[in-house]
């Protein structure tokens, strides 16, 4: 009887992340005044929505056994594109659609190179990163504001839900949660999603089983390109500006979030839901440091490093421990 109730092993790394997150949150709540409030909790989603959306794309690519380093640069590029297009007088809605299309195309272009010529994804997406970053500087060297824009102002003023106490649930966190949900449904319950797992575990055997590897790969990077572009748009809505220097190194945060969430970098193992807790965990580490408010610049870096390490350690230990029990 008891045996049947036992937690399935494949959920363990994910459960470990959730447990560690809750404990850290509880510690913050006990130690700091005003920490255990709705505002802080909603902020966690609001401030990290763009990272979360990027992490969904990165997660899908990593599940397929690849990696995408172009995320941060694509975010900067779409932001600049939307800012420039609206500055040229093009309708904001259209500008957003164009930016999304460019993002998807960019992803597909990268994956076509990877899939049809057998190139290492690390290198191709690194090239993509340089290209998108250079591209955003070519659009404009300086940051561009998108002020007094009717569409963005409408999003900000009307598409929000008051939760009381001056706390609002805004459009961008809802978009993130929808994207996450779609990603989870896609990877877990659709045949296309299962193919991504299949090529992530073993490309050769997937090919032998009749999975169209190249097409699946192109799809995975296409989705990632879409997610990066969407993250770029969310970031633009969040900032009301485009800046070619935005989000340098964001790809590392996205990868870290995905891995902390229990997805293996080698591909094929883990759940997208984990990326939510990976993102929240990284956000929580920052909030803890900000609430502490007495840590100088270099200790901030060291402590972020130590906390990331601790999270990984905890997860590893819990996973190993339950391995032994089973």
């Amino acid at each position: 009887m008891l045996k049947r109730l036992r937690f399935p092993i494949r959920y363990v790394p994910f459960a470990a992340t959730v447990a560690v997150f809750i404990v850290a949150y509880a510690i913050g709540a006990i130690s700091f005044k005003n920490f255990f409030t709705l505002r802080v909790f909603v902020n966690l989603f609001h401030d990290n929505a763009y990272l979360g959306i990027a992490a969904v794309g990165t997660g899908i690519v990593i599940l397929s056994g690849g990696i995408d380093l172009s995320v941060g640069a694509v975010i900067a590029f779409t932001g600049m594109l939307v800012a420039k297009l609206t500055a040229c007088g093009i309708n904001t809605g259209l500008a957003i659609l164009i930016a999304l299309a460019v993002g998807i195309l960019f992803g597909i272009l990268q994956s076509t190179l990877i899939a049809s010529f057998d190139l290492p994804p690390f290198l191709v997406t690194l090239g993509g990163m340089f290209l998108a970053r250079g591209g955003s500087f070519i659009i404009n060297e300086e940051a561009l504001s998108i002020l007094k824009n009717p569409v963005l102002d409408f999003i900000e003023d009307n598409l929000q839900l008051s939760l009381g106490n001056g706390v609002y649930l805004e459009c961008i966190e809802v978009v993130y949660l929808i994207v996450l949900l779609c990603g989870i449904v896609f990877t877990q319950w659709t045949p296309l999603g299962r193919r991504i797992y299949a090529i992530g575990v073993n490309e050769q055997s997937a090919l032998l089983m009749g999975v169209p590897v190249a097409r699946t790969k192109i799809m995975a990077y296409g989705i990632a390109g879409f997610c990066s572009a969407l993250a770029g748009i969310v970031f633009t809505v969040y900032l009301k500006s485009g800046n070619p220097l935005n989000c340098i190194g964001l790809e590392m945060d996205a990868i870290a979030a995905v891995v902390i969430g229990g997805i293996l970098l080698t591909g094929g193992v883990g759940y997208l839901l984990g990326s939510l807790f990976g993102v929240l965990t990284l956000g929580l580490i920052q909030v803890l440091i900000m609430f502490q408010g007495n840590i100088n610049s270099w200790w901030t870096r060291i402590i972020i490093g130590i906390l990331v390490l601790l999270f990984i350690f905890m997860q590893n230990l819990i996973t190993k421990l339950s391995d032994k029990k089973q």
Partner: peptide, 26 residues
């Protein structure tokens, strides 16, 4: 410890620059 290389070295990538600043006092 069997941690994935990219994540394992990410720790020192983030913290290492902090350590260097700690040594030079910024």
């Amino acid at each position: 410890c069997g941690i994935q290389p990219m994540v394992a070295t990410l720790v020192l990538m983030v913290a290492g620059r902090g350590i260097a600043q700690l040594i030079t006092d910024g």
